[in-house]
């Protein structure tokens, strides 16, 4: 199988999307005869090339993060450029890997609905949608923290490489938690506190911006140019 992959993260190669794709594509490539090509939608100047890649693909995987409860700008820009392909006979089958900063997969449910409708609007056979929450930071985490996730991504890729589909059990696991149950919320709260200290505060301090973290630069409506 030849897989055409579109990484839709604004961060391109240095993205969490790329980190999730890497083990997936390794697993995918284990099946003899499988190959993939990878495109970065953040490279605006390559839009024509992306359109061509889509039009020639037999099977396409779109992977990107949730941005304000939907797709990042570059992904919508790409989608608009694909309008001429709606209903074309030879469109590729289409699978989606979406992930969010917030840990629960429920944040991505509307986007999944949108993407699956988009596949039918384009007339692309739908492979499915994999959702992963809590993706912010994985590109910087030590291997011990990401090992289990990357193993799962690799397995997902292996099954996909053999069958052309997303394993439902692995997909369901990756989507956990859909939301936190009442008794898990206190644990989640501790995790969030850790993220504030270890992630946001560390960066704020590193930039000498910690004291200004609550700044409200627009609080007076005083700069009417």
């Amino acid at each position: 199988m030849l897989l055409t992959v579109f990484n839709g993260s604004p961060r391109g190669r240095a993205s969490n999307t790329a980190c999730l794709l890497e083990p997936f594509l390794e697993g995918f490539s284990e099946t003899a005869g499988n190959a993939y090509e990878l495109h970065y939608l953040a490279r605006e100047k390559e839009l024509e090339e992306h359109i061509r890649a889509f039009s020639e693909a037999e099977c396409a995987l779109w992977a990107f993060p949730l941005y304000t409860d939907c797709m990042p700008w570059a992904v919508k820009n790409f989608i608009e450029a694909l309008a001429p392909f709606c209903g074309r006979q030879s469109n590729p089958s289409l699978g989606f890997l979406i992930h969010s900063g917030f840990p629960e997969s429920l944040h991505s449910h509307n986007l999944k609905r949108y993407l699956e409708k988009l596949a039918s609007r384009l007339g692309c056979p739908l492979i499915g949608t994999v959702i992963k929450g809590g993706s912010e930071g994985i590109r910087e985490q030590p291997p011990a923290m990401t090992r289990a996730l990357f193993r799962r991504m690799r397995e997902l890729g292996q099954v996909f490489g053999r069958s052309g589909g997303f394993d439902p059990v692995l997909t369901a696991r990756l989507a956990q938690p859909v939301r936190f149950s009442v008794w898990k919320l206190p644990v989640a709260r501790i995790g969030l506190k850790m993220a504030e200290l270890m992630y946001w505060n560390r960066m704020l301090k590193g930039n000498g911006a910690y004291e200004k973290r609550f700044a409200r630069p627009y609080s007076q409506d005083n700069a009417e140019e």
């Binding site: 700008w73 629960e104 944040h107 993220a195 946001w200």
Partner: peptide, 22 residues
């Protein structure tokens, strides 16, 4: 969509739990 993504400076990086969601 481009401007929607650019509105996040209006929020704060810290978290809260609202209606059981992060």
């Amino acid at each position: 969509k481009k401007i929607s993504d650019r509105l996040i400076p209006l929020l704060h990086p810290y978290f809260e739990i609202d209606r059981g969601e992060i």
